[in-house]
């Protein structure tokens, strides 16, 4: 972030209008992307265009299926210390109560763990090269960290900050009200963390907790489809043509995930 500020100051004299600057930077960015693309094409295996005739390529028996994250026990990415923050923090956001199971019971920490251990954690879907000017909030994820690196860097920084605020105690040992204070400070950016943006982490974390509660159970969270049952979402169904004209009628089928539902095996 510091680099970005320096760059902005150097550019200050030339900055007649924001529009001009943005356009110039956009063009520079475009050139960079172009050369990166060329380098990839040259360095990696040969790239060829193919004309597809007679319809799209289709091969019997092939499927692009998700990895089943429900089988294995324990964490693949989180250390014990990290789990000691993620578990109570997510449970604080979605607690077990009269409405049903909370984040831990629903497997939210497991979901986040499996995601951080895979392509999402590596940031495979992000452009993570420079330059790194201060981004706008509307531009979304704007850090040099991969999601996994962000969790790895932020959690110890949060625990240090918590220790400073609560006489050396860890987040897990705090009471609910104090935990809420910590989370509120993270959300508002009031918690000043060393080397990592509290707001950037919060933005990613709250999103991942929600995803873990509502994503398909195959990914480790939303166990037993508790998230879907809570809001009445029928799950991984695809088409409701037969229901379009049937008003004021309750949709009778229970939710279903990619792995199915109990009736597939138990009837």
């Amino acid at each position: 972030m510091a680099d970005a500020k320096d760059d902005a100051q150097k550019d200050g004299a030339q900055r007649r209008t924001h529009t001009l600057l943005d356009r110039r930077k956009l063009l520079a960015g475009g050139a960079l992307l172009g050369s990166a693309g060329a380098a990839m094409a040259g360095g990696a295996a040969e790239v060829r265009g193919t004309t597809i005739r007679n319809g799209q390529i289709w091969r019997p028996g092939e499927a692009d299926y998700p990895e089943d994250a429900t089988g294995a026990k324990g964490y693949r990415f989180f250390t014990g210390a990290e789990a000691a923050f993620v578990e109570p923090a997510s449970e604080r956001m979605i607690p077990s109560d009269d409405l049903g199971p909370g984040a831990i019971e629903a497997g939210v920490p497991v979901f986040i763990d499996r995601q951080l251990a895979g392509p999402f954690g590596r940031g495979d879907h992000f452009y993570l090269g420079g330059p790194w000017p201060q981004g706008l909030e509307t531009q979304g994820y704007q850090t040099r960290y991969t999601p996994a690196d962000l969790y790895r860097a932020a959690i110890p920084a949060i625990e240090r900050w918590v220790g400073g605020q609560f006489s050396g105690r860890g987040f897990k040992s705090l009471g609910g009200a104090d935990q809420d204070k910590v989370l509120t400070a993270l959300e508002g950016g009031d918690a000043k963390l060393k080397g990592v943006s509290a707001k950037a982490f919060w933005g990613l974390f709250i999103e991942n907790v929600i995803e873990g509660f509502f994503a398909d159970p195959i990914y480790g969270g939303n166990r037993d489809m508790v998230g879907w049952k809570l809001i009445g979402f029928p799950g991984a169904r695809y088409d409701y043509r037969e229901w379009v004209g049937r008003h004021s009628e309750r949709y009778p089928l229970p939710p279903v995930g990619l792995k199915g539902r109990p009736a597939w095996d138990r009837a």
Binding site: N54, G55, W58, P60, G61, E62, A63
Partner: peptide, 22 residues
Amino acid sequence: GVRTAPTPTRPTPLSMPSYAWK
């Protein structure tokens, strides 16, 4: 899965996915 025959009159073949994995 299966793919419908592409023909001059119906050149876009529809396909049903494989369920062997699921």
